[in-house]
Design a protein around this nucleic acid. Sequence first.
RNA 1: GCCGCGUUGGUCAAGAGGUUAAGACGCCUCCCUUUCACGGAGGAAUCACGGGUUCGAGUCCCGUACGUGGUACCA
Length: 511
Amino acid sequence: MAFEKVRVRFAPSPTGGLHLGGVRTVLYNYLFAKQQKGEFILRIEDTDKSRYVEGAEKYIFDCIDWCGLQADESVLRPGPYAPYRQSERKETYKKYAEQLIKDGHAYYAFDTTEEIEALREKLKASGSNSLMYDHHVRMQMKNSLSLSTTETQALLDQKTPYVIRVKVEPGQEMHFNDIIRGEISFDTTHVDDKVLLKADGMPTYHLAVVVDDFLMKISHAFRGEEWLPSAPVHILLWKHLFGLENMPQWAHLPLILKPDGHGKLSKRDGDRLGFPVYAMDWKDPLTGNVTKGFKELGFLPQAFINMLAMLGWSSGTEQEIFTKEELVEKFSLERVHKAGAKFDFEKAKWYNHEWIKKLSPEELKADVIEIFSAKNIEIKDEDFLLKVIGLVKDRCTLLTDFYEQGIFFFQSPNVLDKEAVMPKWNDDKKQFFTLFAEELANLRDFDPLDIETSFKTLVAEKGIKPGELLLPLRIMLVGGKYGPGVFEIASAIGSQETIRRINKALNIFNA
RNA sequence: GCCGCGUUGGUCAAGAGGUUAAGACGCCUCCCUUUCACGGAGGAAUCACGGGUUCGAGUCCCGUACGUGGUACCA
């Protein structure tokens, strides 16, 4: 099983949305490929027409792009093994399915849905603990094993709809070595005769994944733990079709679970608990419903993939904040957890906060401009914006927080928190601010220290406690009890604007 | 039901037979800050249970419980 180089793949189905677990699988694939100087390819599983959603394919590429995890080969960037859409590889799968029949490892099955339903009813009634189409029942069904060659040929000639099923021989021990879980064993007695090729000529996942992985020379295959139970089928196909020695190494990733209750995290949990489960906003073209994404909520892609990487993996050190490059360097499949992890949105926000603190104003600039422009605030002076970002970024958890944390640098506050001021408002204070505004007009340099000195001097003259006046001043400039140091703010917005805001507020407070 | 996989604080987790069982999120207290954050110091809180093996078990084995996934012409 000598592979020339590491080749990994991710194969989403375009059924709408890209869930956290999916993005994490992409991420682990990407990290491993880059680390091993290998290639990451992205193929599309679009063989189920009934679930195909228009636009979902593009959406998947957009999400992956936002996360910065571009594939080396894909529908967008075809490589030597194109096409990468399974619907365009139909004939290939059919060829291998027929090969399997020829070799006696698969068979035609002509049973209708109703007949299979009836089988299950019958099994249930008889108290059987297995409702599968398997070696117990296949000779009672309508297929090329129970029928004679001529009968089978006749049905085929009449264009009777059929599927192709694997023939699983019972009583065989099967082993394989999972990179994360180690030795895993199955008994084929409990494996059913899975459908390989559907009546419409499309392959099922089982056939397609094996054929594609072989043809595309995949060396390592990572997928969610939910696939573990179907591994025996895949191993059987590898054995019969391409040889076990050519099979990729498997790694079954732990599941991402609901924060409360039980089960896999699903799209509905996000709506229910108020956090996103998709990378980006997804608008269902049929219903028009929008499912929220991390991007639009105000997450940085760096924080998003950092958080995702740590959900099921740890470096073994105390480091928690990793750049993509550091992840490529440090990541190891052996250190991926076996158990599923509950998703914690609070921790996700913490990662974002850390990343906002870590990035420079320059690196944050483009995102912040976008946040403001979405609120119809046009940024004219970028140097000023950079200064503002530097002043407020430590108090922003989400990118969208830049709006409320920074808006007062660009606009006089519309609403003042009067409640915080009025109960203690009096003539002395009124007088103070009137005087203070006049003082400010005379200041040469309007830097924070000068303003503070001027303020303190006046406060001392008037014999009022500074604390009594600092809060009203803040409310006047900012509107509320938040933001960086008042004198920093005053200096940033300039003397004219500061005086204007003080006077405006005086009118309101004195009214 | 059957089959697979798993189980360290509320959550993410370190831990590869001998540790005072790291660290982070969240929560609480205090300090800093004449706002809100940032930052700093501290606190409460954990090895699912029962049997083995061993001088010694969170770590190895077996069982039980619980969780989770699969059991589709879905992926």
